[in-house]
Nucleic acid binder design. Structure first.
Length: 304
DNA sequence: TATTTTACCTGAGGGC
DNA sequence: TGCCCTCAGGTAAAAT
């Protein structure tokens, strides 16, 4: 499932091929792939054709390619199963191909950017750029303090130099919700999904159902440190892949699945204490954790 | 207002 | 073999 490391691998892979490239043709094969776009498929295609890309940026799980009209960007969200692939010009259709951009680049020649998505939770759109709320650069891959309007409500991710650690602790202190729910709230901290939430909580020895406002300042700081460590390690290993759900722009899988300590390890021994990792239902999905290392404390200061 | 639940979607895999 | 059911989960709208 594409979370921050996976989306960053895609952004970094796309950047050299698309920055400076011109769109020769755009085709929307399945309109569900542009549900985030306000106009029609024909209008989407027309607005991209003949345009060049000026940059490739990312905040959390959203990425966007700047368009050379200066105030718009092509934004993309991979959802659950979206892939952005670079293919030779004229390559045969991918399985679940939804959108294709034929581009030409001065150094790389003719290429196809293919958006493929099995479950169609992902989407592309052309969106207007707006100033960032804090005036800092919008995210990875850009120095500009401009981001697509649809991304404006998304918090900075923990690897963003402008992420506000004090705001993080203050936000936790006023949230009654379970800490895992807060970790998954993209308006609090972006880029974390179910896999890295479970991994970070395991590393920080915090039970996923712990009310956020019961975490001590120390525990909140420790959790943020572990979130960063988990994301950075996953990024270094090319992301986490299960089956063929997530791949880089060349269709290759990442290796982080081999480094998981909690997610998907139901019944297997905890790497710290040897007791079995358990799986609990959580928000229509699953939480994986160690009942021994991650005690559910319902009193403040018990988690220092 | 703050928080929680639901809809969206396809394919893999288990049970019978 | 084939049908039915469950599961996977990010986002945003809807409900509480």
């Amino acid at each position: 499932m594409p979370e921050l490391p996976e989306v960053e691998v895609v952004r970094a892979g796309l950047a050299p091929a698309v920055i400076g490239a011109t769109v020769v043709a755009a085709s929307v094969i399945d309109e569900r792939a542009i549900t985030r776009h306000e106009g029609t498929a024909a209008e989407f295609e027309a607005r991209l054709t003949g345009r060049s890309f000026t940059g490739a940026a990312r905040r959390g799980k959203f990425l966007w390619l700047g368009i050379d009209d200066g105030d718009h960007a092509l934004i993309g969200h991979l959802g659950m199963s979206g892939q952005l692939l670079l293919r030779p010009a004229g390559a045969p259709p991918e399985r679940h191909e939804r959108v294709r951009l034929d581009i030409v680049h001065a150094q790389h020649g003719e290429l196809a950017v293919v958006f493929a998505d099995q479950r169609t939770f992902g989407s592309l759109a052309i969106d207007v750029l707006v100033p960032t709320a804090d005036g800092a650069a919008a995210g990875w891959g850009t120095d500009a303090a401009l981001l697509p309007s649809q991304v404006a409500h998304i918090a900075r991710d923990p690897l963003d130099p402008a992420f506000d650690d004090r705001l993080w602790r203050a936000t936790l202190a006023r949230k009654n919700s379970a800490i895992k729910r807060v970790l998954l709230d993209q308006t609090v901290v972006s880029g974390v999904g179910n896999i890295y939430a479970d991994e970070s909580l395991w590393a920080a020895r915090i039970h996923p159902e712990t009310p956020a406002n019961l975490l001590s300042t120390r525990a909140a700081r420790r959790l943020l440190t572990e979130v960063r460590a988990v994301l950075e390690k996953a990024l270094a290993e090319g992301g986490t892949s299960f089956d063929a759900q997530y791949v880089n722009v060349n269709g290759q899988a990442g290796y982080f699945a081999h480094s998981l300590n909690a997610y998907g390890r139901t019944g297997q021994p905890c790497a710290r204490c040897g007791r079995p990792i358990v799986r609990d239902a959580f928000m229509n999905r699953s939480s994986h954790f160690c009942r021994h290392c991650q005690r559910l404390a319902l009193a403040a200061r018990a988690l220092g």
